[in-house]
Write a protein that binds this DNA or RNA. Structure first.
Lengths: 210, 210, 210, 210
DNA sequence: TCCTAAGCGAGACGGTACGTCTTGTCTTCCA
DNA sequence: TGGAAGACAAGACGTACCGTCTCGCTTAGGA
């Protein structure tokens, strides 16, 4: 069942490239990087790069995929819990994720970044959000608004917050952001979905702990 | 008072380039375009391009700037009206704007697009939104949440909706989208800002007219 | 019969261009000069240049034409004199000419120069030389060697000397060069042409005056 | 002892470029050629050209260098022979060389040529000639004329003949040209150098075999 | 223990786009 | 009307990067 050693060697090469890319993105943004920059940073021959990836975009996607699925995995369980604070827990985990990789995301989500990051995030997060919406929708009467639409609304709002948060050096903790988000979002989307909002901590209490 | 003819000639050249770029973006996306593609489409010498713009990114920004300011101008007046439906009017105008240029934005806001479009839109729209938020904030007690933050929240949510809307061939009219947005947003953000929401048309009434 | 003022103005423009070109050649060679360099030096609009000349080569040729014909004019009369030292006088005048414009020719006849200068000089000087050869040939029995050939031989030899002379900062006076040339050339070519050489000053006398 | 294959590949590329250049020069002259013309003719990528040469001038020089050294090698041994006809043998070899590449040189030495060809030829040939002059000078009393000067004289004369010869479709054989040159040159330069001329075939005998 | 196939570094190469430079043409305006 | 100013098309320049390729080196896994 063990992987042959050859494969481990390959994994090391791919890992080096991935690490090198993420490091360079933090330093110099994504667009201006060349394949040569990446392979040099990784101490890998340029030709070798093309044995593993078609282009730097594919490398980025595969590199992010890890992080994304990691994010998805951490949120997924919360969706099944119908307890009171599940929603706030999920959003807190989202903010936590972006905080964990803040240097990287700050670059990717602003001017030196890559188009597809926004798009991908919107798609991936909205799928997660949709699961959530559907779950609640099943329990409660529908409102006629497509769940996809609500999911994009919710996700867009979160990403808007995250961009602001990262660009302003995260003046609040992930928990605080989650509470703020809850207060902004809950009454509206919740009402539309016809369900009662979760119990949220008092807003001014939370903000004062800044 | 008339512009010398030289200047008009220059304007015509710049206009040709701008038009050519936007047309090509709709057809082939932004990233893969070359300066040569653009100048060829515009029937302009490639060297001439560099007399006017540093690179295609600058051309795109200047081209979009027109549209953005056009959008800003159409929304601005509504911000000063404190009548009931001002907010819904403003958001309707936003959706209308993206509908007017839907082919272009659909490309720019998805995978073949340009990085900075998201960023710019977020910045520009959130500035407009902020004016709105501030206006309301002045009238009512503050909540301690930075207006920048709320503005990004609002803007992100709208952009989320717009991405969904464009990717799904705009199944609702701009008016309908504005009402949906109002229902999703109003109770939450409005409550946080401590003011009463505007009177919104009934949601099911609006959706049934699809 | 006087030239209208306009024409004099034209002449001034052409003169400026010519002067500017020759000045710049001395400083920077010919090949690397641009039309812009020339018109800038001459304080003339670049477009104006093209009203008068097709390209910088034509300007150079016309500029050199003056000097060449000036050289031709000074030599011509000596060809008709059959007195003893006519030959040495003619060659002295040739060396004198190159000394007069030594900075210019040094550039043109070496690495930064223009192809056609060598060719043109060879053609023009050999035509003059041919006149000389023919004159003598008429007086004396032919040898069967084409006069063109002899003329090119003679001219090539002189140009070889001139290149050496200019490249070595003219260590001898034009007169000395003419005598040297006479001693190197006279017995050979003269014998072939079947005529007696002119009386030449003693070589060591001449060289010692260096 | 064999060259690694890489190096042979490089040599093939360089050879292709060299061959292509010389071919194109014969057809279209030198000045008007572009790097693209050359690489296209050689079936080489334009960028690859710049891996090997800085510009087309350097390529020309390296290409000519081969031929020049080939010429030098063929003449060199004759300089050491003090037998009677060594001089005529050397000059015959020079004329032979230009005959071998007459199409190329005809273009290079006339209006469509390259500046540096004259200069280089003058320099290279005069160095060879100088060896010859020095050799003879050593055996005989000096005359006070710098050997450089004599070498340039001799070389210029030969180049003059060659230009005429090539421009007139080589009406004489290299041997005939060598004899003509010998008759024109020998008495003069030889006398100056203070040595007896070699035995030359009778001029009219040689010319009649045309 | 050797040997043999795979991963890899090195780098030549064709190709494409870049941004710059120069040319020659044109148009407008000024003296 | 001659010239200055300068926009423009055309096209070559030299550079940068891409993706492909061929070549040896090394290095493990199976003989």
């Amino acid at each position: 069942m063990v992987q042959p050693k050859e494969d481990r060697r390959i994994q090391r090469t791919r890992q080096s490239l991935s690490t090198a890319l993420l490091k360079l993105i933090e330093e110099r943004g994504y667009d201006s990087l060349t394949v040569n920059d990446i392979t040099e940073q990784a101490n890998i021959g340029r030709a070798t790069f093309y044995l593993h990836y078609e282009d730097k975009e594919q490398l980025l996607l595969e590199s992010l995929e890890d992080m994304f699925s990691q994010l998805g995995d951490s949120i997924a369980p919360t969706a099944k819990v119908t307890g009171e604070h599940n929603s706030i827990t999920a959003t807190r985990l989202v903010f936590q994720h972006f905080a964990d990789h803040h240097r990287l995301y700050r670059v990717l989500l602003t001017e030196k970044g890559a188009v597809m990051v926004f798009t991908r995030l919107l798609k991936i997060l909205s799928q997660v959000a949709e699961q959530d919406v559907i779950l609640k929708d099943v329990e409660q009467p529908k409102t006629g608004i497509p769940t996809h639409l609500v999911a994009h609304y919710v996700t867009g709002a979160i990403l808007g917050l995250i961009v602001w948060w990262l660009n302003n050096d995260r003046p609040y903790s992930p928990e605080q952001m989650a509470v703020i988000y809850g207060h902004l979002m809950d009454p509206g989307a919740t009402k539309v979905l016809g369900i009662a909002g979760a119990q949220l901590p008092d807003l001014s209490d939370v903000l004062s702990k800044r």
